[in-house]
């Protein structure tokens, strides 16, 4: 699969999916004009990759500064997808939620997502 490399813009984050390495990064601010248009293709590729590479480890790093409620819905979809795939296929999926040390807000948002996680590793770390 072809590597995804989306540059950050004013309202949308940088996204890198390096399938070879089994790594994904979402970094920056996320309140795109059209959430479905922006994230749709990325989510489709991600799901395809995970379902076709059941024996591969996968690490997904988030370095978000701000996300709106529509983007929160996308994040929830990603985590639920990880949970479901990891549960059924024995994948080792790891989420790293990186925050600035003094950004309690983003830390709390990460903790809220982490509360519902059972099957994958969800680590909150300082940048």
């Amino acid at each position: 699969m072809e590597k995804i490399n989306i540059e950050a813009a004013e309202r949308s984050p940088k996204i890198i999916c390096d399938w070879e390495k089994g790594e994904m990064l979402i970094s920056g601010e996320s309140y795109p004009e059209n959430v479905t248009e922006f994230y749709g293709p990325v989510l489709a590729s991600l799901e395809k990759f995970l379902r076709e590479n059941k024996d591969k480890n996968f690490a997904c790093t988030f370095e978000l500064l701000y996300f709106n409620s529509s983007s929160a819905k996308v994040l929830m979809r990603i985590f639920d997808m990880f949970e479901e795939i990891s549960n059924t296929n024995g994948h080792k999926i790891k989420v790293i939620w990186k925050v600035d040390e003094e950004d309690d807000n983003m830390r709390e948002l990460g903790e809220e997502f982490a509360e519902d996680i059972e099957n994958i590793s969800f680590e909150i770390a300082n940048k």
Binding site: S69, S70, A72, K73
Partner: peptide, 8 residues
């Protein structure tokens, strides 16, 4: 939208 804006 996501329908969650008001909750936010």
């Amino acid at each position: 939208g996501a329908g969650v804006g008001l909750i936010e």
